[in-house]
Amino acid sequence: MSYEAWIILIGSMAGITCGITGCFLILRKLSMLADAISHTVLLGIVLAFLISQSMNGIYMLIGAAVVGLLTVVFVQLLHSSGVQEDASIGVVFTFLFAIGVILITLYAGDVHLDVDHALMGEIAFVPWDTVQIGFLPELPKAFLMLSAVLLIVLVIIFLFYKELKITSFDPAMAAAIGIPVLFIHYLLMGMVSLTTVASFDSVGAILVVAMLIAPGASAYLLTDKMSVMLILSGVFGVAAAIIGYYAAMLFNVSISGSMAAVNGILFALVFFFSPTKGYLFKKFALKKVKYGSEQ
């Protein structure tokens, strides 16, 4: 496969994985928590590196998942001790991210891991960072990691679809019929952590937020069915990855930054032109109403 094809494939896989995970975050009003996790996994990755002294993907996944879940626990703790939720998130993620940055500059500055990489990823180098496992041919590490995480995410959604749905829609009712709301919450947060770290190499800590939230937000404005929303968000994720890549080549800029920007542009298009919930449609409908009442 060509270099270009690998980048597009890996970007698209990150787009799908982030997009469908992000739908649940939007519906549960947990977007900011995802923003927090995407920052704090940096600490997880740095700690995993410092402890294991290797850049092995498995250690990083574990480190990131642990710190991601810790972020959720800390936010929960602060919130239940009386701090506003938005402020709890702000305090926790800035602190953990700051520690991560300090550790990188102090101990890991000379290795593959550096701050710029953490911020915007290095999808341009990802196809060359390959590994050979079992009978498989030599494949990019990022591709393997994203495949594994995408599979996990799909399996979780397939198995727990109705639980994820009802705990998002009506947590009180879900608890009353005996669905373990807290377990589902942490399951989802685990998914977010894995998704973030798998996409981390390609797109970095902060741009992954755009990939998590924008496709789902666009899909949210196009449909009234949750299953359709999930599929659409995947489509948007892939579209942003492909268009973003070619835009980056055209203007010779950061590929991951460009993917985030395209995600934003796609959202803006949907926001204005969605056939039922779009801004222009609503303005138009309002005018019709006004016009009608004048007659």
Binding site: D35, I206, L207, V209, A210, V253, G257, M259, A260
Partner: peptide, 30 residues
């Protein structure tokens, strides 16, 4: 975005934050 669509505040903040930052990174590389 909040006052003209069904998008809630947290999602709107997150979206604008990351997209603007994405543009920032694009420009920074330039």
């Amino acid at each position: 975005v909040i006052s003209n669509s069904i998008i809630k505040e947290d999602t709107a903040i997150c979206l604008i934050l990351s997209v603007f930052f994405g543009f920032g990174i694009v420009l920074l590389t330039k």
